[in-house]
Design a protein around this nucleic acid. Structure first.
Lengths: 194, 194
DNA sequence: AAAAAATGAATGAACGTTCATTTTTTATAT
DNA sequence: ATATAAAAAATGAACGTTCATTCATTTTTT
């Protein structure tokens, strides 16, 4: 077990509380006072760790993005074949969204609203570079369709956000077979057809 | 040109202002006072047309959803063949998102945050029934993959939201060929492979 | 002249943020 | 070990602002 200092514990509690309130109530209904209460901290304490509310939200976003990327590329190695590498990364992303439910919902809220600074958003995208590089390699090898990485992302990774939302609302139930089927759809959409 | 009564004009101006402020600043930074100012109306007047802020947001959402569905199915006829019908609907949806940019961004914000009542969200989904029926028919004919309509939506319609967001941020440029390519990806992902 | 629509100043609640004070931790001396 | 002092961390009441909403009054329509 990692040793966390007292201030690290508090900072983490603040981040956790922010995520929880934002995904359940929305940014507009996640006041600093409630965040403090949920983290068992005084409102003033937040300002020892973050400059202001915007800074808090930006930092939460960037730290989740980093943890997301770490998870996504955990087992990936650029020496892998394109198809294998893509399956590996895609399934790790799906796993992140299944296990780190709240963090994933927070990211999808950030990516679809103006609640994060443009600058932080740009920063967050950089983490996905290995996936973009993989796609480029796949295109050079004639394995992946010749479209920009925005399209490739839109049809492979982005759909997961919709499915996780539906899962959260108990509209669907996601198991291993479900993930496998979804993966095949993702691959079918971007693989170069003969 | 349709004849609009004075109160219809005012109501429309309020809706337009709400959309504009929410997509640019977010719900949390779209106060009633600003909405009123942008619509050239007094703050008190909003309450002649809407019960409160939540009701305003819900109604804007539902009315955009209705207009979205109308556009989506404008040229669709259930007697069409499955592939033809799908292409027709998908391209109309893409067109809506390209032309009614602000409305589409508003919807994507609503669908990824808790800013809309669950009840209104449920109501909004009903509009897509013809597309779900088409998919079911396609599955019976063995043309479309056997997965639930959430997956089919996630891999065909939902990706458009990501692309339109990227377009809005000037990260990509969308033209006719781009739409055609994106359509082919959508179709490739859900069509039953032999 | 009566009715309906619209106004905008007023209201009270809630918000983000600050800062004088208190509590806890760390460093030093006994 | 224990006591003491300095430093750091945390507190929460208070502040000024902004917000959604109301309603007595005015303007417009019938």
């Amino acid at each position: 077990m990692e040793q966390l200092s007292k201030s690290e514990i508090k900072r983490n509690a603040l981040i956790k509380a922010t995520i929880c309130l934002v995904i359940n109530n929305g940014f507009h209904a996640a006041p600093m006072s409630k965040i403090a209460k949920m983290a068992n901290v005084s409102p003033g304490t937040i300002y020892l760790y973050f400059e202001n509310k915007q800074d808090l939200i930006n930092k939460v976003y960037l730290e989740i993005k980093a943890s997301f990327a770490k998870h996504a590329f955990k087992n990936y190695d650029p020496s892998m074949e394109v198809r294998e590498g893509f399956e590996n990364i895609w399934k790790q992303i799906a796993d992140f969204k299944l296990v780190q439910v709240e963090e994933a919902l927070f990211l999808s809220q950030c990516d679809n609203t103006p609640m994060i600074d443009e600058e932080s958003k740009k920063e967050g995208i950089k983490h996905l570079q290995p996936l973009i590089d993989l796609w480029k390699r796949g295109q050079e090898e004639g394995i992946i369709k010749e479209c920009c990485h925005y399209v490739l992302y839109a049809y492979t990774v982005y759909p997961l956000a919709f499915l996780m939302n539906a899962k959260q609302n108990k509209e669907i139930n996601i198991n291993k077979k479900y993930i496998q089927d979804a993966y095949l759809l993702a691959w079918d959409s971007i693989k170069q057809s003969k």
